[in-house]
Design a protein around this nucleic acid. Structure first.
Length: 716
DNA sequence: GAGCACTGC
């Protein structure tokens, strides 16, 4: 199917492209185009409807103004000369002028909102300013980040500026890696880590100031922190809070904190001119390909960043670009296409960051990863399809889905901003201005889109028993909260009144999904903690089994030697055990030979190590069984998957025990096509139909034994 | 008989 799609896509693309770019036309068209756009820069690249060109119009004057406001254009284009001292460099940051004002504001107000664009230096400088303030003599400032790398890099930079060893006065704290000491006065941490700290220190008493950075991203963790911090300031009058946001929706944060003052910091961002298409493009892949070549022959050198939705698209477009690039005259600028997505192997990801091949224009084809997580230097042009893949959780059906959706206006601005990091840039939106205006202003916060089981457990374990009335900036639907409560109840984390019990509290201390944490607790009783730790580690990150498009059969063949008849849980245990027995100098080779994802395996081993340490601290015995007792292992998992089970019906289909929905075993599962009495599954995903993945076989009579309190009414 | 945007503890 996938192959067929690609084939037909290539067909239309090819036709349209050659309309616009036959070999002979290439250079003359490009000349014509350049002339036109120069002659009428206000009106856009007007070329009419011929030749399959994608026609863009520029933003109108008013809109350009708004854009430059949004991006707080820096007037000085020159960069600081190399030899300047760190202090002199700091003094040139836009935020330096605001130093006294910020210090004054934070002395006078308990909460402020700081809006600063990229490059303002707010994340590195404000913590240093604060530590010089009168009120901040004792304790430290905590700066939260949504991502691990950001926490580490900011800490490194500030340690340098303070001329101190990293981990001393300036440190960071992220999962698997803590670099702080009692001396630490500026601590960069992921927001998940600060949420962890709430367990042992409910008032976060070590901090004189908390800075929630990148709050506009509205991650689940940031949103939970916002609610907790609002509670804490009522109990700690001395605590200061700074909410940092990159967009102009700061009023929402200000309102949430009872009208907190907003400070605006200008950034070091160059203007980006926005271009829209005149008419909606039917096929954005086709439009993308044509736009890339159209712009390539027209625009001065400078790399290009194209936002697409996923790996398949990126790989398809990459091969098309490479094909058509062969038609470029050899005396003209050539094209170097670079794919970029999270699961791309490290070595290939590096190509994006290395200097562009001489006489080439680098064209980075990227997912959303380049919108926030990764910054690429040299980008002058952005092409934005206006789309992204978004995960959504249907609370009524308990199904997840991943669908392509239009992005928000603020995401579109974030994308266009990627063209103006080093010089003035251009952004070509493959949609009309009218369509842009119809986009939602902000993206939907994560808390409204995902399964909240883990979040609800987190809230309850930190003293927020009433999760419906927690002070959310954007409350999730009642239905999704109720579903999470029901799920937690089904696995025995809550008592009959919905309060967290000892089991639930123990689960909350384990950094895993509630279902997997429950399996671990159950494994203690079944004397198979060792095996279950290995399996939950595998289930906590991307699959270790790779299936490259071109070598699918080879990869499937390699996987057969690990297959276990009882299902996917024991299959991944088999594979991990073989890996662990492989000598360290052979492991890389083993991975390549067996189509095993080395990056996933590294994370699996990190998680495994962390879980084993957790057990050691809790004094839990990690058994040293020589023989694997599959029934004990599966029964342990069933404690966590009790509401994720399905029974085989006479017609050969599986129907869920809760909700009686028909589900199919995903073709990637080792139980695909097998008919067993009953199954439990790690996740259910809606793609073309409801599929379950991470599936293992169970006996029907295990169900009532595991959760009589829950399944009593729906006896099997 | 077929999919995986991106994070995080």
């Amino acid at each position: 199917m996938a192959g067929e799609n690609e084939g037909s896509r290539e067909g239309t693309l090819g036709k349209n492209l050659t309309n616009g770019f036959t070999k002979g036309q290439l250079s003359s068209e490009s000349k014509k185009n350049t002339k036109k756009s120069k002659g009428s820069s206000k009106k856009g690249i007007e070329t009419g409807k011929r030749n399959g060109f994608v026609n863009f119009m520029d933003e109108d004057e008013e809109r350009s103004e708004e854009q430059s406001d949004t991006f707080a254009v820096s007037k000085s284009v020159d960069k600081p000369p190399k030899k300047k001292s760190l202090l002199e460099q700091r003094k040139q940051l836009p935020i330096w002028e605001a130093k006294d004002a910020i210090c004054q504001k934070i002395q006078d107000n308990r909460v402020i909102v700081v809006v600063g664009e990229t490059g303002s230096g707010k994340s590195t400088q404000i913590p240093q300013f604060l530590n010089e303030c009168e009120y901040a003599k004792e304790g430290c400032v905590g700066i939260t980040q949504p991502r691990r790398v950001a926490a580490v890099n900011l800490a490194k930079r500030v340690a340098q500026e303070q001329n101190t060893r990293l981990g001393d006065k300036v440190g960071y704290s992220i999962r698997f890696d803590d670099s702080t000491s009692p001396n630490t006065r500026a601590k960069y941490l992921t927001d998940g880590m600060l949420l962890r700290e709430l367990i042992n220190d409910p008032l976060l008493s070590q901090y004189h100031t908390l800075i929630l950075d990148e709050a506009h991203e509205r991650t689940l963790m940031t949103d939970m922190l916002l609610g907790f911090v609002k509670k804490i300031i009522k109990k700690r009058p001395a605590l200061r809070v700074i909410i940092m946001s990159a967009t102009l929706n700061a009023e929402r944060f200000s309102e949430f904190f009872d009208g907190a003052e907003i400070c605006f910091i200008s950034g070091r961002q160059y203007p980006v001119q926005i271009h829209y298409t005149y008419v909606p493009e039917q096929d954005y892949m086709d439009a993308c390909l044509r736009t890339i070549f159209q712009l390539h022959v027209k625009l001065p050198p400078g790399d290009m960043l194209v936002f697409l939705t996923g790996q398949d698209e990126i790989e398809a477009l990459e091969s098309l670009i490479t094909d058509y690039a062969k038609q470029l005259p050899s005396n003209k600028l050539q094209i170097q296409a670079c794919p970029l997505f999270a699961s791309l192997p490290q070595e290939q990801q590096m190509l994006v960051f290395q200097p562009t091949i001489p006489n080439h224009r680098k064209i980075v084809l990227s997912t959303n990863i380049a919108e926030t997580s990764v910054t690429i230097s040299g980008i002058r042009y952005v092409i934005d399809t206006g789309l992204a893949k978004v995960k959504q959780f249907n609370a009524r059906l308990g199904l997840e889905s991943l669908t392509v959706q239009p992005i928000s206006q603020s995401a579109a601005r974030q994308r266009s901003g990627r063209a103006g990091r080093e010089a003035p840039g251009q952004c070509y939106r493959l949609y009309t201005e009218a369509d842009f205006d119809k986009l939602p202003k902000e993206s939907t916060p994560e808390i409204k889109r995902i399964d909240l089981s883990q979040a609800v457990l987190t809230l309850k374990a930190r003293g927020q028993n009433d999760v419906i009335n927690f002070d959310y900036m954007d409350p999730p639907s009642k239905q999704s909260l109720v579903r999470a409560l029901e799920h937690l109840y089904s696995i025995g984390a809550l008592d009959d009144n919905g309060k967290i019990n000892e089991t639930g509290y123990q689960m909350s201390l384990i950094p895993l999904l509630p279902s997997l944490a429950r399996a671990m607790l159950s494994a203690r009783e079944h004397n198979c903690l060792n095996e279950v730790i290995d399996i939950v580690s595998c289930l906590s990150t991307d699959s270790m089994f790779l299936f490259p498009q071109e070598k699918r059969e080879e990869a499937a063949e390699a996987k057969t030697k690990f297959l276990h008849s009882e299902g996917d849980h024991l299959t991944c245990l088999n594979a991990l055990r073989v890996y662990l027995e492989t000598s360290s100098d052979m492991r890389k080779h083993w991975c390549n030979q067996n189509f095993v994802n080395r990056r996933a395996l590294k994370i699996i081993l990190d998680i495994r190590k962390q879980l084993r340490e957790h057990c050691k601290k809790a004094n839990w015995d990690i058994n040293d069984n020589t023989e694997v007792n599959t029934e004990n292992i599966l029964r342990s998992f069933l404690s966590g998957y009790i509401s994720s089970t399905a029974l085989l019906h006479p017609d050969g289909s599986y129907k869920t025990t809760v909700g009686n929905q028909t589900v199919s075993i995903h073709p990637s599962s080792s139980l695909f096509g097998k008919k067993v009495e009953a199954i439990m599954y790690h996740e259910s995903v809606f793609t073309t139909k409801p599929y379950v993945r991470g599936v293992s076989s169970i006996r029907g009579n295990w169900l009532s034994a595991v959760a009589p309190h829950y399944l009593g009414r729906q006896q099997v």
